[in-house]
Structure formats: structure tokens, C-alpha cells
């Protein structure tokens, strides 16, 4: 299935096939949760299909499709980390290169998908270079990456980029309601925008992150965030028991609010992620200064980097909120003078 927000990318791919200008290597880039891998697989199946239809969708009838859907197609290679959370090993890439040295099994295309491409270690990436440089005929390598900036530049320069963007909030909410009816029923009804914001606007990630507890936590965190800014709550006094479950996610929320504040400051309203909080954020934006927002953002990044160290979560959060307090208070102060 082609997601509505990937339609233009899909059409672009089909056009390249029709014009016989398909490159040998492509990089599907964009944030997590946009269905890049799904599109890559779909495209692979269509390329291998014996009779794709007019819209270049696979027939799901021919032998090639049967084999593809059963994961037994000999000319399709999906390279993923062997274990969840681990990297793609050099031996996996070497195996692929070996396959490319041999002739194709059937007469059509050969496709390899490497996902997530950034999980290749340096040795794996280097051993892929040879294939990216001198690919065999009728072969397509698709790299799928949500963090393409961390790929070596030697890889990046050998791939054509296909960028995927988040859909508009309306399109995403429509899609969520249409294809995942019942997902937002009950006590979390109407929280689509909040969930989307938590997923950076990526609908497929939103589907996975629907969790009433998390939604509630985010609300709590945001009220605390507001209360500290208004001076109604002390950064140290607040009850933060609910943070026991982990603070990485709450800190990431703060990060996304701060970046939204920056966007408001520089008049980029349309790029706002936390649409459900836009009114409050707008009010806050008048209370803070752009320079200190940037400094605060750096602070948060630092904290996120240190997350692996066994630090006291309560103290980190206190520290963060104290900073936030100073940031908002100082502006108020100058304002009064």
C-alpha cells in the first residue's frame, strides 16, 4: 500500500522506471515512522513482478509475487541487523557482494534493501562501497535510513536521495482515523494530535506509540513546564514520582517544545510539531528570548547524550527545570524594568 504522504515519492520512482532512468543505488531518507521501508519493499516487489499494473503496483498473482510475499525470492535481498538493536555486520554485506558476483536467478531486476543503513558499522559500509561503485547490471540497492546524516559521506555521495517528509497534521489525523479506527477510542479520544506530536508527526510511529499512560504523562509534564514558567510551581517542589519510569522520553518532549518555541520566535508557524499545544506555546514564546532558547536546547542535547550514565533521574529533571525557570524568569525581570 502506498501511504498518501509518500505518493509523490512513489510517482517519482515510477516515472524513473518508465523513463528507464533508474539509478543503481538510492537512499530513502526521512524521519522514523514514515513507512520508508514499506515503500522500498513495495517498489522492489513491483520491479520483480512479471506483470505490474498501470500504476506499477505488483499483480500479487505471478510466481515472482508469490515468492516475494513468502520471502523466498532469490533476487531479493533484505539486509537487516541479525539481532534487534545490533548493527549490520560486514559478513552480511560480503554475502550480498558475493551474490552480486553471480548472475541473477531470473531475467528481471535484482534488488537489495539495507535497512536501517546507518546501523552498518564502518567495515560493513566500506565493503558496500565496491558494489555501490561498480554495480552489476539490472541491480538496485536501496538504503533506508532515518539518520542518514550519520552515514559515511563515501556512501552518501554514491546514492541518489529520495526524501520522505511528514504529512500535514490534517492528512495524518485523517489517515489515522481511516486506517486505524478505534485506535483513539475511550479515554484517549481526541488525542490524535498529541500522539502525532509525540511521534514527531510520523503517522506510523504514532500508531505504535498510542499509550494512554504516556499521553497522560505528557500532559502532566506540560502542565509542570507551564507552571514553572509562570512561577506557579517551584522547579524543586513539584511531585515528580511519575518520572520514575524513565526520563528520556519526557526530556525529548521538552526538547520538541523548545524547538517549537524557537520556530515560533522565527515565524515558522507552519513547521510546528506540537499542534495540540500551539496556543500555550505561543503565549510562552512571548515570555522567552531566542538566544537563551538555543542555549537551553544545547543543554537538553547534552543531557540526552549522558542518558547512558547511571545518573539520578530526579536530580537531572530538577536541574533541567531550574534552568527553565531561570530562562523564563530573567526575561520577566528585564520586562519589568
Amino acid at each position: 500500500m502506498i501511504f498518501p504522504w509518500t505518493l509523490s515519492q512513489w510517482q517519482q520512482l515510477v516515472q524513473r522506471v518508465n523513463e528507464q532512468r533508474l539509478p543503481h543505488a538510492m537512499l530513502f531518507g526521512g524521519i522514523e515512522g514514515l513507512g520508508k521501508l514499506d515503500i522500498a519493499r513495495q517498489f522492489a516487489q513491483s520491479l520483480l513482478c512479471q506483470q505490474p499494473d498501470d500504476n506499477f503496483m505488483p499483480c500479487s498473482q505471478c510466481r515472482s509475487c508469490a515468492q516475494f510475499e513468502a520471502n523466498t525470492h532469490p533476487d531479493f535481498h533484505l539486509i537487516e541487523p541479525e539481532e534487534e538493536g545490533k548493527g549490520i555486520k560486514v559478513d552480511q554485506i560480503r554475502g550480498l557482494t558475493e551474490q552480486f558476483g553471480l548472475a541473477a536467478h531470473y531475467a528481471s531486476y535484482r534488488v537489495a534493501i539495507i535497512s536501517p543503513a546507518e546501523s552498518m558499522n564502518l567495515a560493513a559500509a566500506n565493503s558496500l562501497l565496491k558494489s555501490l561503485e561498480e554495480p552489476p547490471e539490472n541491480t538496485l540497492i536501496i538504503l533506508v535510513s532515518s539518520h542518514s546524516a550519520s552515514l559515511p559521506s563515501t556512501i552518501l555521495s554514491r546514492c541518489q536521495r529520495v526524501n520522505f517528509d511528514s504529512p500535514s497534521a490534517d492528512m495524518a489525523v485523517n489517515w489515522l482515523n481511516k486506517h486505524h479506527t478505534g485506535l483513539f477510542d475511550g479515554e484517549i479520544g481526541g488525542s490524535e494530535r498529541a500522539v502525532l506530536a509525540m511521534a514527531n508527526g510520523a503517522p506510523l510511529k504514532a500508531v505504535k506509540s498510542v499509550d494512554s499512560e504516556l499521553i497522560k504523562q505528557r500532559e502532566q509534564m506540560f502542565s509542570l513546564f507551564l507552571a514553572v514558567a509562570e512561577g506557579a510551581e517551584s522547579p524543586l517542589g513539584a511531585d515528580k514520582q511519575w518520572l520514575k519510569t524513565g526520563i528520556t522520553t519526557p526530556i525529548q518532549w521538552v526538547y520538541s517544545w523548545i524547538s517549537d518555541l524557537i520556530k515560533l520566535k522565527v515565524n515558522l508557524r507552519e513547521a510546528l510539531v506540537n499542534l495540540d499545544k500551539s496556543a500555550d506555546l505561543q503565549k510562552l514564546a512571548q515570555q522567552v528570548e531566542l538566544g537563551s532558547l538555543y542555549r537551553f536546547l544545547d543543554n537538553i542535547l547534552d543531557i540526552l547524550k549522558k542518558q547512558r550514565a547511571p545518573l539520578n533521574t530526579q536530580m537531572i529533571m530538577d536541574d533541567l527545570l531550574l534552568d527553565w525557570k531561570t530562562l523564563t524568569a530573567s526575561v520577566e525581570h528585564t520586562h519589568y524594568r
Binding site: Q67, A70, T72, P74
Partner: peptide, 9 residues
């Protein structure tokens, strides 16, 4: 397993 899934030449 179904024969259609077998990658014979």
C-alpha cells in the same frame, strides 16, 4: 510448503 514459493530455475 506451497510449490509456488520454491525458487527453481
Amino acid at each position: 510448503l506451497p510449490a509456488a514459493e520454491f525458487p527453481n530455475i
